[in-house]
């Protein structure tokens, strides 16, 4: 029996393999913060929210997925369409050509997307989403039509994701911060600025300068003045690396245009009247929440920074 027990014990010992032990941590295959399925889900949720709010023209419904400048711009558009019969809402396509995701390990994080063209006469729209913290949703913060003729640089796919660069990133020249500040200074100074040669031509700046010249002349004729103030929002400016080592800067820009006349009453025409808060007499300040998407090419290409998408969104008109 002793022999039998020993044989059985040995047999059982040979049968029972030890449980596996933890050895090493496998690397994550997909480095991007969002996979394509989740990114599409976020896009779908966003446009479901927009659709619901658009249907009722109620900006209060722009929660969860539409916040910040995007909510302010859309709310202004609701005001116009609710007060001007012939006004129509800006069409925001929910069909995306490309979605660019971040691979950041920290917050805030961003996601960008390029839509199909809304119609044959319009260029595609670039959207920007921001996630402030791990507890927050990705929220649509802004959008802008692409500049006619502009091309977005190639971006990393949704497996690797794009690296979120700091504004002071030195891998590109100029740095994103320097490129943005220079461009905004160019907008302040106008077409005659020396900085004009530092950036590729774009229709956004050209239209801004044309409107400025026209309004400045009109104000001058009325004994008043026209002043543009261009302010960046660096805290909400984000940079993604491009595939070729460049940078794509998403910059909210606040522009206030003050128009004054002397000895006359200022009248706000057309759709803009719906955005007037109060009674205007001789001076009005127009506030715009713009989104400028600036491409800073990699140094080896010797190309000028260029605005690839930008849009001038009027949100309020305040009398002063």
């Amino acid at each position: 029996m002793v022999i039998l027990s020993a044989v059985a014990a040995l047999a059982l010992a040979a049968c029972a393999a030890e449980p596996p032990v933890v050895t090493e941590t496998p690397a994550t295959v997909a480095r991007a913060a969002l996979d394509s399925t989740k990114a599409q889900e976020i896009v779908g949720d966003t446009f479901a929210t927009l659709s619901a709010a658009d249907a009722s023209g109620d900006a209060q419904l722009l929660t969860q997925r539409v916040e910040g400048d995007a909510a302010a711009v859309r709310a202004a558009q609701y005001r116009v369409t609710s007060q001007v019969a012939e006004a129509t809402l800006e069409v925001l396509p929910d069909d995306m050509q490309r979605i660019y995701v971040s691979n950041s390990d920290t917050w805030p994080r961003i996601m960008a997307a390029v839509s199909v063209p809304p119609d044959e006469s319009l260029t595609p729209i670039v959207y920007l989403w921001v996630q402030e913290s791990v507890q927050d949703n990705y929220e649509l913060r802004g959008w802008a039509h692409m500049i006619p003729g502009a091309t977005l640089p190639a971006m990393p796919g949704d497996v690797d994701g794009a690296t979120q660069l700091p504004l002071g990133e030195t891998g590109v020249d100029p740095s994103p911060r320097a490129a943005l500040e220079g461009y905004l200074e160019y907008l302040r100074q106008g077409a005659a600025s020396e900085l004009a040669g530092s950036y590729a031509e774009d229709s956004y700046a050209a239209q801004l300068f044309a409107a400025r010249d026209s309004l400045a002349a009109a104000a001058q004729n009325a004994g008043g003045a026209y002043v543009d103030t261009v302010q960046p929002d660096m805290e909400n400016t984000f940079v993604l690396s491009t595939s070729d080592g460049g940078a794509l800067v998403f910059a909210p820009v606040r522009i206030t245009s003050s128009f004054s006349v002397s000895g006359a009453t200022l009248k706000v025409p057309g759709n803009d009247a719906a955005l007037v808060d109060g009674d205007i007499s001789t001076k009005a300040t127009y506030t715009y929440q713009d989104l400028v998407v600036l491409s800073v090419p990699a140094p080896q290409f010797n190309q000028l920074p260029a605005v690839v998408a930008a849009e001038h969104h009027l949100v309020t008109i305040r009398p002063e």
Partner: peptide
């Protein structure tokens, strides 16, 4: 539990 955007 906050947003579910963090989940894959």
């Amino acid at each position: 539990y906050g947003s579910t955007d963090v989940w894959r």
